[in-house]
Amino acid sequence: MSTRSIEARPILPGATIGILGGGQLGRMIAMAARGMGYRILVLDPDPGCPARFVVDGCIEAGWDDSRGAANLARGCDVVTLEIEQISERSMEAAASFCPVRPGGAMLAVIQDRIEQKDWLRKHGFPVGPYRAVRALDDVRSAINELGGRCFCKSAQGGYDGRGQGRVGFGPEAGTEAEVRGAWEALGEGAGVVEQAVDLEREISVMVARSPRGEVKVYPAAWNHHEHQILSWSVIPAAIPESLESEARRIAEEIADTFQLEGLLAVEMFVTTGGKLLVNELAPRPHNSYHQSERACVTSQFEQAVRAVCDLPLGDVDLVQPAAIANLLGDHWIGEDGSAVEPRFDRALAVPGVRLHLYEKLKPRKARKMGHLSAVGTTVKQAVERVLAAKAAL
């Protein structure tokens, strides 16, 4: 834990927290904050966003609506965010009325994958080989230079597999059609082409840092993706202690270099050779730490409130292994496209399992509608339980 000696000015319960974004992360931050005695306002373009049902007020406005962001901040003591797509003008508008944590300068780096990769490399953090691309010819050259097997990601936006493509893996490997397909996956705009690495597993590390400089680093989470969407995750990551320590050190140094105020999730690759490579950063609560509510003394959502309000950070020690499995809209849609109701009763019959739904009104394929969590005496048991519950749906 590192500290900076400045006068603490905590924002105490009874104050109002604003959240830029009213999705499931904003909803869960709000639920933790309300339990601590805070009032909550959110801004979101969707009038039926998941957070609307648990907050004191919701401003319907887009991520680039600086007037809406200013209106939010006018009624708040501090503003935070749950999504990276907030425009620079909106961040500045909110910051003219109250502290915005994390800040706009950090967000500007993270929300552009080219800027993010360049920033990590400039500051000496381990990243895999990559090339910035802005034209079809750039994509073609990058794929050749990086050995043919690559992942292509749009510079801005894109998550859960959107705005992403891969080359060198299928029957079209090395063809012009594949290159053009990668360019189209980028939206025919700027992006990064990353060399595919030999993966042993994917992990993430969550860091909390308060304005006074107090830092807490959570145990690493082990993440499993399917179709480029997180399928399940478990804490702890069950990796060698030396690798765990190195991952936590890297994450803390990134947070300190940014002078983070809030939360930062650092996604990393563990290669088959035992190396750690930083994949992506997220300046907010993260899907892979939903199980922190059950695995750790302090959940990521309570910690987010503590961090942005400059309260003492909570203990992040492991209480018990815990896993989550995402529930996508597919579970509500039958093979013929008809609506079906998942059998939550069957899932909840599995020992140690809880259900968490986000009150999203319209299920769509690949849309995150909720998650299941499970605890166990071991990592293996926690994962087995949550996957058994998901299969029972």
Rank of each mutant, 00 (worst) to 15 (best):
R4T: 11
P13M: 09
G14T: 12
I17H: 00
I19N: 10
I19R: 09
G21L: 10
M28N: 14
A30H: 12
R34V: 12
G37H: 12
G37Q: 11
R39L: 06
I40K: 01
V42E: 10
P45W: 05
G48I: 05
A51M: 01
F53C: 05
V54N: 08
V54G: 04
E60T: 15
W63V: 12
N71Y: 00
R74G: 04
D77M: 02
V78T: 00
E82G: 00
Q85V: 14
E88S: 10
S90L: 07
A95I: 12
V100S: 01
G103C: 02
A108W: 13
E115H: 15
K117R: 15
K117L: 13
K122Q: 15
G124S: 09
P129K: 13
A132Y: 03
A132Q: 04
D138A: 09
V139Q: 04
N144S: 14
G147R: 10
G148Y: 08
R149F: 11
C150V: 15
C150K: 07
K153Y: 09
R162I: 02
E172W: 10
E178T: 01
A185M: 03
G187Q: 04
A196F: 10
E202D: 00
I203P: 04
V205F: 05
A208C: 06
A208V: 02
R212C: 06
V215N: 04
V215F: 02
K216G: 04
P219A: 14
A220D: 04
A221D: 10
E226F: 14
H227N: 15
H227A: 15
I229L: 14
I235C: 06
I235G: 05
I239M: 07
I239D: 05
S242E: 14
L243Q: 01
E246D: 12
R249H: 11
E252P: 07
T257D: 14
L263S: 12
L263N: 09
V270M: 12
G273Y: 13
G274T: 11
G274Y: 11
L277C: 11
N279Y: 09
N279P: 06
L281E: 02
L281D: 07
A282C: 11
H286W: 06
N287P: 08
Q291S: 13
V297N: 05
R306P: 05
D310M: 03
P312R: 13
D330T: 01
W332A: 03
I333L: 06
D336H: 07
D336G: 04
G337I: 05
G337S: 02
G337Q: 02
R343T: 07
L348Y: 07
R354L: 07
H356Q: 05
L361V: 13
K365V: 13
R367P: 03
S373K: 09
S373A: 13
V375R: 01
Q381I: 14
V383D: 01
V383W: 00
K390A: 14
A392K: 01
